[in-house]
Design a protein around this nucleic acid. Sequence first.
DNA 1: TTAAAAAGTTCGCTACTCCGAACTAGAGAT
DNA 2: ATCTCTAGTTCGGAGTAGCGAACTTTTTAA
Lengths: 109, 109
Amino acid sequence: MAQNTFGARIKALRTEKKLTLDQLGELSGTSKSYIWELENKAPPRPSAEKLSEIAKALGVTADYLIGSDDTTRKEAEDIAFFRQYSGLPDETRKHLRDMADSLAKMTKK
Amino acid sequence: MAQNTFGARIKALRTEKKLTLDQLGELSGTSKSYIWELENKAPPRPSAEKLSEIAKALGVTADYLIGSDDTTRKEAEDIAFFRQYSGLPDETRKHLRDMADSLAKMTKK
DNA sequence: TTAAAAAGTTCGCTACTCCGAACTAGAGAT
DNA sequence: ATCTCTAGTTCGGAGTAGCGAACTTTTTAA
């Protein structure tokens, strides 16, 4: 059982994505033992670097994981997506927008 | 002279807001000596907690300071604002939206 | 059932974060 | 020129982040 908000959020996201400790460790440039400690030991005080990499690997913002503000998970995912989108090349962004249009039409009628 | 992107961004924001090392330290729950080290020593590896508090004090996102992605400063400020806005009570948000409307009209004509 | 593989847990150690306190530089007043 | 106030800089050390490697538990395969 997670001992803290931060750990609980990581664990929730990790298990939902069906990642093992090892896999998330690899994805975020850290170790499985440390991921486990973050999830289960209190209080966790990761470096900004680790936090950022873990958040990126899980597709949310760092602030959501920290829980420093009351950003909701949905918001965190949206912002993370927006950020990723902003960094894509022009053509890819257009591609994405087109797909969004199609999807919007499908759900509308 | 700042020795790294991270430090350069903090320094730029701090001096722009006319804050001293001491003041930013106070605002972000840290010390002036440490703020100075972040600005001038390489490579800085602050804890997530410190990073988050400093970002909040400077009104930008943590990810912008880290420079882990290519989020622009404008984006970082917008996102930080959006986040803050989202956490405000209904009435205050309405208030803000009204003010935005007025401002929009003024700039339009 | 049981052997092997995968996932999770523990722990000791090294290296680095972060602070306080002392020091230096600069700016203004007299 | 000197005094004072403020801002910036240096540094030693306490405490902890984060790792690897060994260990335990759970899952999978036969």
